[in-house]
Amino acid sequence: MTVIHQPETAEANVETMDWMAAQIKMPYTLTPGQATGIFLAELAGRRLIGSRHGDELIVPAQDFSGTTGEPATGFVEVAPVGTVQAFTTGATGTIGIILIDGSTVPFVHQLLGVEPEMLELGARVEAVWADEPTGGMLDLAGFAPLGSAATFEPKDDPADLAAAFEKVDYTMTLDYRHAYGPYYGTLFDGVKDGRRIRGVKCSACRRTLLPPRALCDICLAPTAEWVDVEAVGTVQASSVVHIEFIGQRLTPPYVYAEIVLDGTSTRLIHMVGDVDPDVAQTAAAPGARVRAVWSDRHTGSLADIDHFELLPGDET
């Protein structure tokens, strides 16, 4: 994976404007470590591997004992047979705590093909293997009532242990509905409907804050007085973006800019567009004057401004 994934930001909830959907979705390659890596790798061959830590035999194998912190001193093949120590049934099925025969530390997994009403503590179960291994814990699909599987004593130092998995692919997807609240709500209602940008004035220091908020960050005094701000300002800081990543709105090169709109005392983060790449370093430098170019989108977000354009004239 070499591309850079930009977190996806969904469009605002345009209808009600009381929350904005946002999603953070990123791929990972996670390293399980030696013992767990071996355990996971061995599932494809339908073997269960545990780890010894002093008197403990932990299944699934782990690098360290949670009880003592002792590292694994050896690996053991154990029978795919165990005993249910606890179980619970919910919307996604039944999961249980299972102690594999011969091991000393139980673990949690799914119980398959069981009728929860008939299941009892102490029930004997056997491993259910995934039809097609995919390289993770669910290659061991779960446990079902004991059928034909045979139990056996743990076998130390099993032959031909698979090499530990070095990476397990994982995608984390986190969805949010961020509240606009009274201040962003008023700001972005104005942006969406009237192309108005409004900040608030601190009742103590009288500076105009954008984005608006209830209290001044420095004075901790209430704000409350709304002020219309013209979408014209000065670049406080800028850089020329050359790298490409997924989700990018403009094609590089373009200018990342932190802009202080006239009359305000805080930064608006945006882009300066329509800049000749050859002169971007100097044309959109700190001090340059810029003006918002509105897009035809009405999403009630900063993206309603397509970009800022350079204003001719002197730097401030």
């Binding site: 179980f87 619970t88 049934t89 996604t92 673990f107």
Partner: peptide
């Protein structure tokens, strides 16, 4: 994320497992 997260364990089932015992 390797052994516990994939198997369906969540805050409710964890509470259920404690409660049963």
């Amino acid at each position: 994320p390797f052994l516990q997260r994939p198997v369906g364990l969540d805050q409710f089932s964890a509470a259920g497992l404690y409660a049963q015992r």
